[in-house]
Design a protein around this nucleic acid. Sequence first.
DNA 1: CCCTACAATAGACATTGTCTAAGTCAAGTG
DNA 2: CACTTGACTTAGACAATGTCTATTGTAGGG
Lengths: 139, 139
Amino acid sequence: MSDLLERLRGRGWRMTAQRRVVAEVLDGDHVHLTADEVHARAVTRLPEISRATVYNTLGEMVTLGEVIEVATDGRAKRYDPNAHRPHQHLVCGRCGAIRDVHPAGDPLADLPDTERFGFVISNVEVTYRGLCPSCATTA
Amino acid sequence: MSDLLERLRGRGWRMTAQRRVVAEVLDGDHVHLTADEVHARAVTRLPEISRATVYNTLGEMVTLGEVIEVATDGRAKRYDPNAHRPHQHLVCGRCGAIRDVHPAGDPLADLPDTERFGFVISNVEVTYRGLCPSCATTA
DNA sequence: CCCTACAATAGACATTGTCTAAGTCAAGTG
DNA sequence: CACTTGACTTAGACAATGTCTATTGTAGGG
């Protein structure tokens, strides 16, 4: 089930205990951990892993395109291993819950040439904000 | 031309030299300054203004709905005084340039009920990423 | 089994943002 | 126009997140 690890291995990534643990911690669906959360979980399996290594490893996975960096709240960046199916995010402004969602249509197509100002656009990030069912009723 | 200041005054906002300077610095089109940039510019007009006041003032303007907080890069938040015309942002990943853009259609309408998972959605933030004309040719 | 280049480490440092206690002031009241 | 009061501002400590460096460790090829 460790797809992420397999993909990384297949790219000639030098494997170490630290990298394996980071990849395992981050693998799965609807995973959107911050670097510190990844570190906290990694430490339970490999107590001597350092923060710097977690940051470096996450950065490399992003560069390789196997993990996506998401800025949902202007605070800590979050890391999403679901890099191979285009999707967007739904965020609860109260408790911070995050869901992957798949809007209809291509958001890129909605931006006419006249509104591109000569930019070469490579991707679009859409964040839907609101309240999750639980927070909406407790509000 | 200080529309922002007028709008704030009209809401019974207690006026001080500091608040006036922050509002003036932030006013205009295609303005997307970080809190520290606002502070740097404010200091040239009012040398004793503190960082805390800039943060407080920006936060209040956001609460009043007269300024929008934008998280374009996972680093510092940016503040956009163009709060009364819905728009999205186009960001250059190399030099950080930001443009306001107006996509066709309503991004909210693209998210079917089955993809809302019971969330009450209040707004959508769309960030188009790419390279600006100048960075695209120098790349 | 040994090299060697690449990876990991601890901890200092940088950036961005928040909080507190004390001083200051805008604006309504008399 | 002085007084008063509650809201505003300040400096600086603190917190959270991220980056960098010099040193030590190790994966994987020969």
